[in-house]
Design a protein around this nucleic acid. Structure first.
Lengths: 293, 293
DNA sequence: CTAAAAAATACTTAATTTGTATTGATTAAT
DNA sequence: ATTAATCAATACAAATTAAGTATTTTTTAG
């Protein structure tokens, strides 16, 4: 049984006229007659009542017309939905991200994906860099947003945002009154290292900043969130080094000094697995457009 | 796009093995490869990811498999339901009947139809003989049960039950004490004619019974139901002539005398239109079996 | 009573699909 | 490391299937 045959049957059931229908579907009348007869045989029911001149639907035919129409509608929907999924216009995209990305560009990306691809469900999961490597490799997520990652060679990556590091100090810190020259002035301070991101080069990057200034940081606190690190700084328990963007929107008694002369930067990186199905290409392109603007 | 192709696709989506699937569906492997490729073209999406040795479903393919399965299930159901309707095993049958049939065989017939053809919806409508002729001709009902009908020649009919007429009298009627010879004894009585059934020969039949006895009945009341006729008889307002079966189950102060010598009988007749679709043939056959037993 | 119309047949032609043989490429085994 | 085996794709010929043309039959309209 052919789909086209069902469509033709429905046309015939509407016109109840073999000749007219055969013209509409661009085939010869005898071919139509045979096709319908064969359909009736394969369904196992008389669908039309013919009396040499008039054609009428039987009860069975009337029912089958409605049912076939429904079936075809369902199939049409399935096909277009399948095509959408193929084109990355539907389905779902699973995104892993580190906490700090939420502070920067992730909300905008999600908003854009939702408006451009309304049929795509975005599944978000906060995870550290290591987990992103693993899930990308196992194709459990489609895109990762990592922070200062050490990218495994089986994954592709692109830095899309770089931020300068700043030294964060309580607002009454004595060194704020002097002109800042370099980080060595803080060699005797106690350090609060921001959120420990496993598998990232983040901690290592901060350490290397200090080492470049000639000392190894005396870390006394590890915090899980940026804000709690700032709270500790405000309370005078130490100082910290953070990307400048982290300070946005807080209202604490802290000050910062930009480290714009050092080579280290806080990097936001997008990660993907090029062996994953390329359905998400349109979304990757969209993201590329956003992060380049 | 062919239905068989969809079935084959689903098999392949399950085995993920062209060669095995081709054996299962009894076709050569290259044919299967081509068929699937053509399916992918007509759907407009890559359904399988092949890398020269392994076959895997794409996201789109996984979705399409589920959707196609649903579609095929729906079509299967539609086909079997269509076939059922064709065979008279499903759908609906519309039955018209006169009041007096309810007294006799109709309940049994309905019960049997329901148990033998559970998927057939029985639509019952009480109507007089004339209405049955009209609705049968216009194919608004499928079967009619009429009482003493004058059958139009475009309809088929079969008498399935004959009842003797009885004269119904109040239990203290003087003539009950004498031996009954013939109806002429009641020539001076006032008559209550039972329910007026339009278009039937019913009234005419009763009249002819009296005429055969040598008088024309003096009708003073027309009643719509058998029971109210009996009530009037009980109250002494007159006598009536009814089929014997009508007396079943009543508990009034009335008596009856059988008219078993006269040729007139109360006839229950089944009517149908042979130009109607023959889907109801199995039901007609069932009814025939019931009324012959 | 004739002509037109509408669906079904008969027969030929065209198109599509299938199968066989083969290729290319990858994995497993000796 | 080389060979054998496995698996899907390609090429071409064969067969099946469906389509078209011409014709027939029956019914309705003028």
């Amino acid at each position: 049984m052919d789909i086209q045959t069902l469509k033709t049957f429905i046309k015939l059931a509407e016109t109840l006229h073999f000749t007219k229908t055969s013209e509409q579907v661009l085939m010869a009348q005898p071919a139509l007659s045979r096709q319908i007869k064969q359909l009736e045989r394969s369904v196992g029911a008389e669908l039309f009542r013919r009396n040499k001149r008039n054609v009428a639907l039987t009860k069975a035919g009337a029912y089958f017309k409605e049912a076939a129409q429904q079936t075809l509608d369902q199939l049409d929907y399935a096909i277009s939905r399948t095509r959408q999924i193929h084109n990355g216009e539907a389905g779902e995209i699973r995104i892993g991200y580190t906490h700090s990305i939420v502070q920067t560009i992730l909300p905008e990306i999600i908003k854009e994906i939702r408006s451009r691809f309304p049929d795509v469900r975005t599944i978000l999961r906060e995870m550290n860099n290591n987990e992103q490597y693993k899930d990308l490799t196992e194709q459990k997520i489609d895109i990762g947003f990592a922070t200062n990652p050490v990218v495994p060679k089986n994954l592709k990556s692109k830095i899309f945002f770089e931020d300068v590091f700043v030294v964060v100090l309580p607002k009454d810190h004595p060194l704020l009154k002097q002109r800042f020259r370099d980080l060595s002035a803080f060699s005797n301070e106690t350090f609060i290292l921001p959120h420990e991101i496993e598998g990232s080069g983040y901690v290592h990057t901060v350490e290397s900043i200090c080492l470049d200034a000639g000392f190894f940081p005396n870390v006394v606190h590890h915090t899980s969130s940026v804000n709690s690190a700032f709270k500790l700084v405000e309370a005078g328990l130490g100082i910290t080094i953070e990307p400048k963007g982290s300070l946005a929107g807080q209202n604490l008694a802290i000050k910062f000094i930009e480290l714009n002369k050092i080579p280290q930067k806080a990097q936001s990186v997008i990660l993907w697995n090029e062996h994953t199905e390329n359905e998400h290409l349109p979304i990757l392109q969209l993201i590329r457009k956003i992060i380049n603007s």
